[in-house]
Design a protein around this nucleic acid. Structure first.
Lengths: 250, 250
DNA sequence: TCAAATTTAATCATAATTAATCAAAAGTGA
DNA sequence: TCACTTTTGATTAATTATGATTAAATTTGA
């Protein structure tokens, strides 16, 4: 019985029952539980199924989080420290872009009392800033429910009509070679905002630095300032690219 | 019983009842209350539900802006009857405008399963339709917090880029002489949407018929259909203006 | 406001699952 | 055949999930 044959059987069972457990599989296929475990792990790595404690589930049955508006996120401290530092640069009269990432969202709590105008495509940001001193300009276009954001051609056009003094953006990954995004939509928004801004801030917790993602969408030239809790060797490379790096401690 | 399976059951119950309590869940699922508590906490962290003292609630029941929800509760039954009738005219493939009034908001509940595209400047409408079959296009511009809507030049321009088969609009008052709005912003939005629509529906409960407000912004020529629970003498005047009147009973 | 009742968070113990290590078996290619 | 890799299974230590217990926090009602 080869791995491929077993994988096939596992997917069959998964299709029928929605979920399977290790003992059941070991019995049915006639191999040891250790082997089943190895199979499941490698299949999960390929995205063929969702590994659970004691078994596996069909991918489509897995419940995905919907919005981070109410999400009590883990690892908030680095993000909050980064945003607090970034917010210190925002002065009354500023017009700023805030993008739809979860890091930039944390900026909201620090700017509620500032007399500024915020342009954003993020629905949680709008909710958060609604009853604050801030004036909100919401970017229009197609609503992406999973990202809780507005995207598309109309959104890009909307952005191009405005100009901001500062933009506070997030990325999926950043290296000396450039910027990486999780989707083309996000990349386009980031680029559009950066193009209309005098000074672009990248808010990156340490996990983003040195990380690449599936789409490299630009070099570092659009970035003016990186705010991060990372202080390893990449920092020098950023600085030699003409970027200021604000280091924060958590 | 894995965590994932329990999560499914919890969400199922939540969908049915809107809220659940810990004891009930522990009993139903067959695990200890401690475990249920842990499950609820981790699910809340993922934004899958709203954790309450002693249980949990459906997210969508929570994130609705309170100010609007209460406003919408005035005269609910006529509004619902009107919207139900209006929704009957909406067919798969339609592109519709929904404006930011409290009446038009009640339309959402009747269109969740339709395969349509909704263009709106109303934040509550976006929230309400988020997890439905509907595709949402959000109009961009200045956010008006009190009205929970998007307004301004950019909004009007956004609207002018699209065309809809039907528009579902509300007004502050309507007489044989014309349409009355509570603010210039609302008037502009209404006009802009009507201008880009093949068939314009006015959703007016009886309190709006024959009422004037501080701004008369247009005659009745932009109106194609009035849906109302009013059946007094004004109806004939509307009909002699070439408008169809759908009468509903509460 | 206070006090009683309820719910929660924290700690610990136990049971189940997993990852890691190593050895045996089966396949590979010269 | 022999050396080599790959796959599999057994064993054990580490991790994770769960439940019981109790102190702390929250809600409720007077």
């Amino acid at each position: 019985m080869t791995f491929q044959k077993r994988a096939h059987k596992i997917l069959e069972l998964l299709e029928t029952y929605g979920e399977v457990d290790i003992r059941q599989l070991a019995n049915y296929i006639g191999v040891s539980e250790v082997t089943v475990r190895r199979d499941l792990n490698s299949m999960a790595a390929k995205g063929l199924l969702y590994r659970t404690h004691g078994g596996a589930m069909k991918i489509s049955d897995v419940i995905k989080p919907v919005s981070f508006a109410t999400k009590a996120e883990v690892n908030l401290k680095p993000k909050d420290a980064i945003c607090k530092r970034a917010a210190a640069d925002i002065i009354d009269g500023d017009v700023i872009f805030i993008d739809c990432g979860s890091t930039a969202f944390r900026l909201c709590q620090f700017i509620k009392n500032k007399n500024i105008k915020v342009i954003t495509n993020s629905l949680p940001v709008v909710n958060e800033l609604q009853h604050s001193a801030v004036t909100i300009n919401l970017i229009g276009g197609e609503v992406d429910v999973t990202r809780q954001a507005v995207h598309g051609t109309m959104a890009l056009e909307h952005i191009s009509r405005y100009h901001a003094s500062k933009a506070f953006l997030g990325v999926d990954g950043i290296t000396a070679e450039g910027l990486y995004a999780g989707s083309e939509h996000e990349a386009n928004n980031t680029l559009a905002m950066a193009a209309q801004t005098s000074c672009t801030y990248m808010l990156c917790d340490a996990s983003k630095i040195g990380k690449t993602s599936y789409l490299k969408f630009n070099d570092l030239s659009i970035v003016d300032i990186i705010v991060t809790n990372y202080n390893g060797p990449e920092v020098n490379k950023f600085e030699s690219n003409g970027i200021s790096v604000y280091s924060v401690t958590v």
